[in-house]
Design a protein around this nucleic acid. Structure first.
Lengths: 205, 205
DNA sequence: CCGCGGGTCATCCTTTCGGTGGAGACGGAG
DNA sequence: CTCCGTCTCCACCGAAAGGATGACCCGCGG
C-alpha cells in the first residue's frame, strides 16, 4: 500500500530535495505546490493521502490557513507541517487547524518518511521536545489579546513611544496606556521591552 | 569545463534538493557537509571550485567564519552564500569574509546554477535588491559597537531593566546608563525599544 | 433589560529612563 | 610619552513610562 504525498513549499530547492528523499517503495510524491492556493487546487483533484506543508509560504495565504482549508476537503488529506521555525503560536495554530503533526526541517529524512507513514495511518506526529513544550503550554495558555491590543503590541515592537502609537491609532495617550496595561497584565511583564521580548518568543508578533 | 561544487547545509533535505537540482552537464557536486568543520575538512582535499554554503549551520561555527577559513585555503574555493535570511549584518559579514556572492533560498534553481558558474569564473554574485541595499549601507555604515555595548544590547533585547543589566554585568546602574547612551547615539535612537528594533533589523543581535 | 467585554479617556502618583556634563583608570597605538 | 578608546562611575534634571482607579459608550448574548 503506497502513500501518496503532495509537497507544499515556496522553495523550489526544498521541494526537489523532499521529492528526492521521500520517493521510496511505499511513498509516492504525486505533486508539488509553491503556494497555499496551488496546494488547495492540486489537493482537490489529486486526493493525496498526506500533504507535507511548510508554514511560511511567501506572499499568499500562510500554512495554517492552508491546513484548515485542506482539512475541509472531502476526502481530507492528513496534513504534516514541516518547517524551519518552532514558534509556539505557530505550532499551536497548526495543530488547532487540524494538522496531524509538526516536524522541523533539520531532522533527517528517515523521520520525515516515518512521519508521513504515521500521518497516513491517521496518527499524530510530534517531535518529543515539541510535544513537551506544547503540553507545558496547555498549563500556561497563550494569552489572547484583543484586536486593538495586538495593534498596539505591533507598534510597540517597532519601538514606537506611547505618543506615536496614539497618533498612529488616532486615540489619546491615555488609551494607549490603558491598552498597554492590559497587555502587560496578560503577558505578565512590567515593561515595554520585556513585553516585546515575550511576544516575540511566543510568536505573537 | 565542469565546475566542482561542495554543498554545506545543516539540513539533509536541502542538500539533497541542491544536489538534484545542480547536477548538470557543467556542474558537478563532489561533496556535502552538514557543519563548518566538515566543510573545511572536505574542501581541504576535494579542492572544489565553488563551495555553496548556508550561513546558519546549527551548533558549530557559523557560515561567516567558515567562509573566512575556506578562503584561507590554498587553492581557495569561491564561496557562494545561499541562505534564507537577509540580515544586513550577515550579508556584509559574508562579503567581508571573502564570499563571492549571496543568494536567497527562494530563488529558482537556474539562478543558483548561474551564480555557481559566475563564482567559479571569479565573478561576484548578488541579487539586485541585495546589492542596492548593500550600497546604501555603505553610505550609512553599520555602527560598530564595543564588546561591552554589545553585551548590554543583548540584555536589553531580552527586556531587562537597567538594574537587571547592571546586576548581570556586575557594574553599577550608572555604567549601564552610560553604555546605553553610547548605544543610543550610535544607533541614532532615543529609546530602548527602538534600539531593540533597529538592532534586530540591522542584524546586530 | 442587564451584564459583560472591548474600546475609549481621565487623574494622581511613583519609578524608570534618557540627556547632559563630567571624571578617573587602564591599555594599546603612534 | 601622550593620545585615544574603552570601561567605569557620579550627580542632576526633565520626560516618559508604569500602576491604581474610576468612568463612559457601545454592541452582543443571556
Amino acid at each position: 500500500m503506497t502513500v501518496t504525498v503532495l509537497l507544499v513549499d515556496d522553495h523550489p530547492v526544498v521541494r526537489s530535495g523532499l521529492r528526492a528523499v521521500l520517493e521510496t517503495d511505499d511513498v509516492h510524491v504525486v505533486g508539488e505546490a509553491a503556494t497555499g492556493e496551488e496546494a488547495l487546487a492540486l489537493a482537490g483533484h489529486l486526493h493525496p493521502d498526506v500533504v507535507l506543508c511548510d508554514l511560511r509560504l511567501g506572499e499568499g495565504i500562510d500554512g495554517i490557513r492552508t491546513t484548515a482549508a485542506l482539512r475541509a476537503l472531502d476526502p481530507a488529506p492528513a496534513v504534516l507541517i514541516l518547517t524551519t521555525f518552532d514558534r509556539d503560536a505557530e505550532i499551536r495554530g497548526a495543530i488547532e487547524a487540524g494538522a496531524a503533526g509538526y516536524l522541523l526541517k533539520d531532522v533527517d529524512p528517515e523521520r520525515i518518511l516515518d512521519g508521513i507513514r504515521r500521518a497516513a495511518a491517521g496518527g499524530m506526529v510530534l517531535a518529543p521536545d515539541l510535544a513537551a513544550r506544547l503540553l507545558e503550554g496547555l498549563r500556561s495558555p497563550l494569552p489572547k489579546l484583543t484586536g486593538r491590543e495586538t495593534e498596539v503590541l505591533r507598534l510597540l515592537a517597532t519601538g514606537a513611544a506611547n505618543r506615536e502609537i496614539a497618533r498612529t491609532l488616532f486615540v489619546t495617550e491615555a488609551t494607549v496606556k490603558s491598552h498597554l496595561a492590559h497587555i502587560f497584565t496578560k503577558l505578565d511583564v512590567d515593561s515595554r521591552s520585556r513585553a516585546i521580548h515575550v511576544a516575540r518568543e511566543a510568536g505573537l508578533i
